[in-house]
Write a protein that binds this DNA or RNA. Structure first.
Lengths: 212, 212
DNA sequence: CCTTTCGGATAACATTTGTTCACTGAAATC
DNA sequence: GATTTCAGTGAACAAATGTTATCCGAAAGG
């Protein structure tokens, strides 16, 4: 394994500057309207230098997807690592989401905006990562005692519901003004209630498959 | 009440041409990158004529929101109008959503894209309409026998969960190729399962408020 | 130490953009 | 029937865009 090299690290620095500048600009617009010159101007480099790192703003968008989800992976691993009781899981999950919204607001806004945005490759990148998340969660759910009797596809289905719901909670939190504590608590309460309904449904999934 | 007038109807026609052209263009990009000239070109009128109808492309976006949701209101009223048994509701709901995706694909894609998109006024317009939907649904749920014992805020919470889930199902269907029947059926099955979990959770909401 | 590599700067280009202004001609008003 | 209203045209503008080619200088490699 070789050293990074001085030139390579400098290159990574300006690449990061481009990503940071783009992320800041994307709080007020979407990727398909993000201009190449706009980004280089904000990053403090010449327009032509952009091509040393990305061919497109679309390609830059894909890089942002991976950057945004790298930190999220670690965070989720944190929850499922420690074995918590079921009644704590809901509270802890919502707290973790809220913390992520607080700390990585720009990243999350980008994901929410581009998940159904105008750039196909970015949509695909996000969908792939979200699917992987659901896979990981399904594998984790399979180890829990509550999942006795659950088929593998059903667990995957449940996991995707949780992932979707987490994303929904996160985007709802994005709409809340960060210092509006009343609205924040209202949103958090709704998120907890939604999770509780899903958990209740999960508990009774095997009760009466045909009776419903 | 006066007649529409010949000139007024002609104006409405070109306005509609602008909306149609914009909607077509927005299948491959998002509103914040939609150009005024681009729209007028596709609609077949001079760029300057745009200002006779909208001040902005943002304003055009808001008009599109209302156009998209007008037809949806009628559709939802259709479901809740006829009293169907609970076990049919899930199947019918998913069918209606699937039908809407088939018939109003472009409108729905626009809504999904701009719900968290880069244009604040459009986001606000969509959020307002979605909230109204949840209100209507909550009022409808209150009349049903299954809702005995539910508080009003809890019904509102449940309604918003249903609305969110419907939107999620619709956007999932948008990602499916229209002629890929296998993928379509897979997506529909997942949607039905998700709805069933929520419905099960709803049935047991009052069971054990504190036990969870 | 000399040569190659390569991230970045500078300058120029053809296009496209939003907005304005004065205009035209047909519908509406009196 | 004369006059006013007004949706749409055509031309012009300054500004901004993506992309290319050429050059510079420092790091990397021999």
């Amino acid at each position: 394994m070789t050293e990074p090299g001085l030139r390579a690290t400098r290159k990574l620095q300006t690449r990061q500057a481009l990503l940071d500048a783009a992320l800041a600009l994307l709080e007020q617009q979407s990727l398909s309207s993000l201009g190449l010159r706009e980004v280089t101007r904000a990053a403090g480099i010449a327009p032509a230098a952009f091509y040393r790192h990305f061919a497109d703003t679309r390609e830059l968008g894909v890089a942002l997807v991976h950057e945004a989800l790298a930190s999220l992976h670690a965070m989720v691993a944190d929850i499922r690592g420690q074995g918590v009781a079921t009644d704590e899981v809901i509270a802890r999950t919502v707290d973790v989401i809220a913390g992520y919204v607080r700390e990585r607001r720009a990243h999350l806004r980008f994901l929410a905006r581009e998940r159904h945005g105008g750039v196909a490759v970015v949509r695909a990148a996000i969908a792939a990562e979200a699917g992987q998340f659901a896979d990981e969660l399904a594998a984790d759910l399979a180890t829990r005692p509550e999942s006795r009797g659950w088929s593998e596809p059903d667990l995957r289905m449940l996991a995707s519901l949780y992932v979707d719901q987490a994303m929904l909670t996160a985007t709802a939190l994005l709409e809340v003004e960060p210092d509006d504590t009343a609205a924040l608590e209202r949103t958090l309460a709704a998120a907890r209630a939604h999770l509780r309904i899903i958990t209740l449904g999960r508990m009774h999934w095997l009760d009466q498959r045909l009776a419903l």
